[in-house]
Design a protein around this nucleic acid. Structure first.
Length: 238
DNA sequence: AAGGGCAACAACCGCCACCTT
DNA sequence: CAAGGTGGCGGTTGTTGCCCT
């Protein structure tokens, strides 16, 4: 399941590692540590680039690395964190001792992504305009961070053209917002703003008080919008 | 048995942030 | 402050194995 072995123009091997290379690298790092990845292959006696050595060590040779099937607990944690922070594999890996970011990324792409897609269709989609907007915006003014009813109404109106769905997967609620060319999912227990990504915002052209907001550059906008959806979720969904 | 399609995953590549000089 | 080096990250690719027809 790996690439075929080849040698590049500098004489460096590419492709699958053999046992001898693994043993040399493992032995060297065990004894001297990894002080400089670019120099390590020369000292360890392997014809690989430093980057390749680092990858091999981090994903396979580290003594604390765990191989084998993911547990249900690990699945849940990956799903939860992915809902929350998106494709931040290194951050997710930091919460899963013994798992590498590469392994988690592969696992997500081959297993969990499909599961997540299925979950997002549950329980149903709905359109914002079907709800009682005025009552809701009144209750939002204070908590949303927006200035007054007009601002909330304006934001609301501009978002109404997008399809918004609310759903829960396991114990982690999330909100999915679909626009014509992209979709974005985020968790309600937000404490990290990075899950709002540019493609979604770039597509929305949100107007507040006749000013086009630049969402990807505006933390205030981000928090306000998140609060809006969070409040909406808790108010109308059981 | 053959082969086509898909899944799995190790490894590569390009980009970026950070550090050092 | 700028430039170059390095490590880390995330997206993507390439190959093998498995399953289905």
């Amino acid at each position: 399941m790996t690439r075929s072995l080849r040698v590049d123009k500098n004489g460096l091997r590419k492709g699958p590692w053999n046992k001898e290379e693994d043993d040399k690298l493992r032995a060297y790092i065990k004894r001297y540590g990894h002080w400089n990845w670019r120099e390590i292959p020369r000292f360890a006696g392997v014809s690989r680039c430093g980057k390749s050595c680092r990858l091999r060590w981090m994903n396979y040779l580290r003594p604390d690395i765990k191989h084998g099937n993911f547990t249900k607990e690990e699945d849940d944690l990956i799903m939860k964190m992915h809902n929350k922070i998106g494709n931040k594999w290194a951050k997710i890996a930091a919460e899963l001792p013994g798992r590498s970011d590469n392994e988690i990324k592969n696992y997500w792409n081959t297993n969990l992504k499909k599961q997540a897609k299925i979950d997002q269709n549950y329980p149903k989609n709905m359109h914002l305009e079907t709800k009682n907007q005025s009552n809701f915006t009144n209750s939002l003014v204070e908590s949303s961070g927006l200035g007054d009813n007009n601002e909330v109404e304006a934001l609301w109106a501009s978002l109404s053209s997008s399809e918004v769905s609310f759903a829960s997967t396991h114990e982690y609620p999330y909100v999915t917002i679909s626009s014509p060319s992209s979709s974005q999912t985020c968790s309600n227990d937000y404490d990290d703003g990075n899950f709002w990504t540019d493609p979604f915002f770039a597509d929305l052209d949100v107007m507040v008080n006749n000013v086009v907001m630049a969402p990807s550059d505006s933390d205030e906008f981000m928090w306000s919008t998140m609060e809006l959806y969070s409040q909406y979720h808790s108010k109308f969904m059981i």
